[in-house]
């Protein structure tokens, strides 16, 4: 009897949960998730002459992601241009992650060590740029590093250089821009981890003869590792799929995957290849997220 009502209540709870979530699910399936399945389908079709696709099955797009056939003799080879773009995307994303970590850890630490009533204000200062339009922030960086920008003007004014250094439209520019744009994504999870960190463990470390560097390396970093992993994923994932920042700071030539995908839907006129590339990007991101979930689960055990 009581068992029956229990399971009855369970069922009612599940039904209400689903019913209330239904509008959100429908909206997300129509406006976000569902179309992803169409992309999978398109990646197995043939490109149309100007745009769109011809409804014929083909593995050509997936083949083209990594390989190409020589236009003269038809021999098989690596798609060097594609590999260069992939490598640039991964390299710049990893570097962005490293730079944001190096700058973000002291910043997060600094905020966490503020008196409790002032922490919210510092966090807010980190958050404002985070919510500010990505385009505006990229534009702001553009103004700083352009040849006539304040960075070059300042360096020339100081007499350190006599001609402007070309930073804009290089990989370095993309790197500076992405580090600038994604830094808050590193600081916030690091702050959350440091905030949970028991400072008395530092006292214990010093008490047991550890130097400051060793307290940092042997005690703080291992314990806040879940925050480090979270911050790294949060920076790495959007860096890898970045579109606006490399588009504006890298110019037309220094493409990352995001720009390369766009190209296939524009001048490239190869929707299936663009679709296949999108799926590759999505797969890499999903793998990174899975790694995060696994590490985070392990972090819980340690805590």
């Amino acid at each position: 009897m009581s068992l029956a009502t229990e399971s009855g209540r369970d069922r009612a709870r599940a039904r209400n949960g689903w019913l209330l979530s239904l509008p959100a699910l429908v909206l997300l399936i129509v406006g976000a998730s569902g179309p992803l399945l169409i992309v999978v389908t398109y990646s197995f079709l043939k490109p149309g002459e100007y745009s769109g696709v011809i409804w014929e099955f083909s593995g050509q797009a997936w083949f083209q992601v990594l390989f190409q056939r020589d236009i003269f003799d038809g021999t098989l080879g690596w798609a060097d241009a594609h590999l260069t773009i992939f490598w640039r995307s991964v390299r710049l994303s990893l570097l962005t992650t490293a730079i944001t970590f190096a700058a973000g850890l002291p910043t997060a630490w600094f905020i966490a060590m503020q008196p409790p009533d002032r922490r919210a204000m510092w966090l807010f200062l980190i958050t404002i740029p985070f919510w500010t339009n990505l385009l505006i922030r990229t534009f702001a960086i553009m103004e700083v590093i352009r040849n006539e920008g304040i960075l070059n003007s300042a360096l020339m004014g100081l007499g350190l250089i006599d001609r402007p250094v070309q930073i804009l439209y290089t990989d370095t520019a993309i790197l500076i821009g992405m580090a600038y744009v994604y830094l808050p994504l590193m600081v916030l999870p690091l702050y959350a981890a440091i905030d949970r960190f028991d400072l008395r463990l530092m006292e214990a470390g010093y008490d047991l003869y550890a130097s400051r560097m060793r307290v940092l390396r042997r005690i703080i970093l291992p314990i806040i590792r879940p925050g480090i992993v979270a911050g790294s994923i949060l920076v790495f994932v959007p860096s890898l799929g970045a579109y606006v920042t490399p588009r504006l700071l890298g110019g037309g030539k220094n493409m990352m995957i995001g720009n390369f995908i766009e190209l296939q839907f524009g001048q490239g006129r190869n929707w299936p290849l663009g679709s296949a590339l999108s799926m590759v990007l999505l797969a890499v991101v999903m793998i990174a997220l899975l790694v995060y979930v696994r590490v985070a689960a392990r972090g819980d055990v340690v805590r």
Partner: peptide
């Protein structure tokens, strides 16, 4: 020191 909270390293 033996700490009141023990402060044992959890990791």
């Amino acid at each position: 020191t033996v700490f009141q909270s023990y402060a044992l390293f959890p990791h």
